[in-house]
């Protein structure tokens, strides 16, 4: 009994280990083309990149890019909703061929998946009243700036703020934005995603002061899918030059594709 249980545990553990270390399933471009569909994983809970529309279909920036990608490959897109934690396992186990899932390009992830050139990006910056002159971090001194507590922008602002900056930490982006809109603060640390929503409501009342950090996102494929990746990179390059990505970015984020995504360092 005891031995059996131990045996079972050992077997289960080794099976699990095997499944975790199993070689990733590379996607075959020819197979995708002959099937006529490409399975694309995307987030549906990350507005405005991935959302679910009124009729329950995936929509958003990533969905538009996914459809454009499939079209350029001459196949139809089959969009598979994935979540933040399971998107890379979905890709590596072959349940999707491609991820257009707002996956930020990091060195850590690049060890597991192959990234295309960036097709989107999120930047964190200091924004504020258009009339206010704050050119760099030194200009923060004597100003009040709102951030969402414990967010990337909180870390970013706290790191650069000089002595005499009044950093006001709120529970979330919505409240930090409220502080800006009601005039309780003159500046805010926020992402371009949040700012595009503010701009939609307030026009040119606020503008960008200076950048804090940025993160680009790439289309991901399983390692070894070189033909597919080359095809995707062709698509990204073409979509950047012919204005497809500008139009999609304009539609969802209210401005053309930012420079740090177009010409990454």
């Amino acid at each position: 009994m005891n031995l059996n249980r131990r045996l079972f545990t050992t077997l289960a553990a080794s099976a699990l280990a095997a499944s975790l270390t199993a070689p990733a399933m590379a996607a075959d471009l020819a197979a995708i083309e002959s099937a006529g569909t490409v399975k694309i994983g995307m987030l549906v809970d990350f507005p405005p990149f991935g959302i679910t529309d009124m009729s329950g279909n995936p929509d958003g920036y990533d969905a538009d890019v996914a459809k454009a990608l499939a079209e350029s490959m001459g196949v139809t897109a089959q969009i598979v909703p994935v979540t933040g934690p399971n998107r890379i396992p979905y890709l590596l186990s072959g349940q999707v061929d491609v991820l257009v899932a707002s996956l930020g390009i990091t060195a850590e992830r690049a060890e597991k998946v192959d990234f295309s050139n960036p097709y989107a990006g999120i930047s964190i910056a200091v924004y504020g009243d258009s009339g206010l002159d704050v050119a760099d971090k030194a200009g923060l001194s004597g100003q009040s700036i709102s951030v969402a507590r414990a967010s990337t922008q909180d870390t970013g602002v706290t790191a650069v703020a000089p002595e005499g900056t009044d950093i006001m930490r709120f529970d979330d982006d919505a409240t930090a934005v409220q502080a800006l809109m009601s005039g309780q603060v003159k500046l805010i640390g926020a992402s371009n995603v949040v700012m595009s929503q503010i701009a939609a409501a307030t026009g040119d009342r606020f503008n960008k002061k200076f950048d804090l950090s940025s993160q680009v996102q790439g289309v991901a494929v399983a390692p070894g899918s070189d033909a597919l990746l080359a095809k995707i990179n062709d698509f990204v390059a073409e979509a950047k030059s012919d204005g497809t990505l500008d139009a999609i970015h304009e539609k969802w984020l209210g401005e053309p594709l930012p420079e740090f995504v177009k010409n990454p360092k």
């Binding site: 507590r149 909180d154 006001m168 930490r169 709120f170 529970d171 409240t175 502080a179």
Partner: peptide, 18 residues
């Protein structure tokens, strides 16, 4: 009161937690 970014014991705890 930390919801309006006022400083008190709870907000000190939240900052430390972050």
């Amino acid at each position: 009161v930390s919801v309006i970014s006022a400083n008190d014991l709870a907000s000190a705890g939240a900052d430390l937690n972050a």
